[in-house]
């Protein structure tokens, strides 16, 4: 069922990015296949966020290529990344607290008609959006107390789940999660990790930035470690090599 095919859903080869004199990324390689969760590790300033932002179209690479399903692809803007099937959940979640889950799911891409009207004048398909949102949340086993209440009334974990589910709903290829458990308690973290596992089962390619190594052990198939803009290691994270991964991150001799 899980199709870890020969061609990765997303491959970054020789990614290089400079900000003035600072070399933020220096020839980094990264591959993610469908049905795979790859953790991106590294200390602050290691280049994780820069790499993510290059993939999601916020920054452009100075050198190197991004391949989608084996085809070299230039990503110039966040909108283009989304069109290519890459969705990113940033730490701030980018949720609209004053709106309900369905409105959040479809913000900026509302289902509406008729087609002969300009987009902004179309009539919202409120029932359609609500039922598809409910269906998707059910499929990902995200239980919300009330589908009509605003997202601002949800707990931190529920909000994270809504943001992740929204990304999964629209990402045909890659879901990128930036510190999905950083602000959550123990139980709520567990829920979000379960959710990430379900994304894998549903054949998404998932990239997760996380500082929580025990979470990484739980969910990631591979861990890519960056330090000062370079890739310094790639491991299958297990309890046994946790120490080694830590020393890769901090740069001690491991």
């Amino acid at each position: 069922m899980t199709s870890v095919t020969a061609v990765p859903a997303l491959a970054v080869r020789g990614a290089t990015k400079r900000f003035g004199a600072v070399l933020a990324l220096d020839g980094v390689d990264l591959e993610v296949h469908r049905g795979q969760v790859v953790a991106l590790l590294g200390d602050n300033g290691a280049g994780k966020s820069t790499l993510i932002k290059c993939i999601s179209g916020v920054h452009q690479l100075d050198d190197g290529v991004i391949e989608m399903d084996g085809l070299p692809t230039a990503i110039h803007s966040p909108a283009q990344a989304r069109d290519l099937g890459i969705e990113t959940v940033y730490q701030d979640l980018a949720l609209f607290d004053n709106l309900g889950p369905a409105a959040n799911f479809y913000a900026g891409r509302e289902a509406a008609g008729p087609r002969w009207l300009p987009t902004w004048l179309r009539v919202l398909d409120r029932k359609g959006m609500a039922s598809r949102t409910t269906e998707l949340l059910d499929r990902l086993q995200v239980g919300l107390p009330d589908m009509s209440s605003q997202v601002g009334l949800l707990s931190g974990g529920q909000r994270q789940a809504v943001a992740v589910a929204r990304a999964a709903a629209f990402a045909s290829k890659v879901v990128i999660l930036d510190e999905p458990t950083a602000a959550l308690g123990l139980r709520e973290s567990r829920r979000v990790l379960d959710l990430i596992n379900r994304l894998r089962e549903r054949d998404h390619a998932v990239i997760v930035i996380s500082h929580a190594l025990d979470h990484v052990m739980d969910i990631a198939d591979r861990a890519v470690v960056l330090r000062r803009g370079r890739k310094v290691g790639e491991e299958v994270p297990t309890r046994e090599n946790q120490q080694r991964i830590v020393s890769l991150i901090v740069g001690g001799e491991g």
């Binding site: 980018a94 609209f96 607290d97 709106l99 913000a107 900026g108 919202l124």
Partner: peptide, 24 residues
Amino acid sequence: RIVWGRWIYAVGGNPEAARRTGIP
């Protein structure tokens, strides 16, 4: 009921996110 109105609420709720999701 109208997309435009939904955008008004979205811009008020989270302007930065509205920009990122492609709302004008």
